[in-house]
Design a protein around this nucleic acid. Sequence first.
DNA 1: TAAAAAAGTGCAATTGGTCCACTAATTGTC
DNA 2: GACAATTAGTGGACCAATTGCACTTTTTTA
Lengths: 202, 202
Amino acid sequence: MDTPPVVGRRERKKAATRQAIADAALELFLERGYDRVSIRDIAEAADVSTTTLFKHFPGKEALVFDQEEDREAELIAAVRQRPAGQGIVGALREHVLASRLRVATHPLRTEFTDLVDSTPALQEYAERMWTRHTAALSAAIADDAGVSHDNIACRALARFVLDIPVLTRGLRDPRTAVEEVFDLLTHGWHLPSQRLHVHNGD
Amino acid sequence: MDTPPVVGRRERKKAATRQAIADAALELFLERGYDRVSIRDIAEAADVSTTTLFKHFPGKEALVFDQEEDREAELIAAVRQRPAGQGIVGALREHVLASRLRVATHPLRTEFTDLVDSTPALQEYAERMWTRHTAALSAAIADDAGVSHDNIACRALARFVLDIPVLTRGLRDPRTAVEEVFDLLTHGWHLPSQRLHVHNGD
DNA sequence: TAAAAAAGTGCAATTGGTCCACTAATTGTC
DNA sequence: GACAATTAGTGGACCAATTGCACTTTTTTA
């Protein structure tokens, strides 16, 4: 009568434990701040041993970033499933703008963002995780463009696009900044003299 | 009768201690490998307490990268003191190519490079240190171009240029790869259809 | 020459992370 | 349904990096 156990009890329990740990961690972090919470505190709160905790997460920072694979998948999807007639760079531009907007307007994520922004260790980790998507994005671009996976133009484009969120963090007008950098990527820094062509002279 | 103490004894001794620590560390690392050497080993070899060691270096990785300020200064100098008539991007291109060549051909640095390449913790640290120069390089570019320090085009250029060494690491023909990425930075990814313009088709 | 400044010491404590031998639940199999 | 192989979880000892603290010694400075 029950739904057939497509996924066994074991896996379900494992997932539950993992979730309990992640939940406990986030709650404590938000409450006390990242470095005022020890691994042992978290294990305690989730009622598991520290050994178990480390079987689910490779390190303390990883407790905070639980869903990076999803972000990577979205990135790839933005390239692969873009509307017909749209270029790769254009698709990435829209994806970057959209995700920035999503984060900025989602009030629930505010405290999460604050946590990361106020903790150097987490900022670093986030950045490292993010640029680690370079290989996957580069591969997706190469596939789509019909060139080899190790094509340098693809790798560079992937890396530079992934840099953009970091590059435009904390600006008065992030949207414009993102657009501007994408324009630069599209048209290049063609400076006949020594002058950079810039839109907002500030 | 002695040379006047332009720099006092204290500072000299301090510098000597620091150097002794760095030397001991490098020697041990090259001999045994990074993670088979403990901080205590190093302190012991340099004949100081671990407390003293940490007063000179903020962490274990920092023992290996002692001269990052010099690299940053070279970077800035490459922009500021470039030959008349040369553009900023051109100057950076030559600087990147030159430093890559310098490292690649200096046989003494080979074992050092091997050490870093074979130690994930050091690779990460190196990359982090390197991209930390973004702000300084960006400021230098902005000054030179006569725009505001927080100009986004300058920040983006600085960041992307600093990405190039890591982007082109371990390729069969790094020189060509570097040139190619600089070409892309100069002319942009102008893709009317979905096609990337690439020189080497694989 | 007195005293402020700063380098260095020794040691205990904290903390992230690993190791290992062991229990117990789950699963696949006959 | 019993049995053996997996595998999640345990608990606690253990390691190494890093910090804090109270203290000594040297150098500088007034």
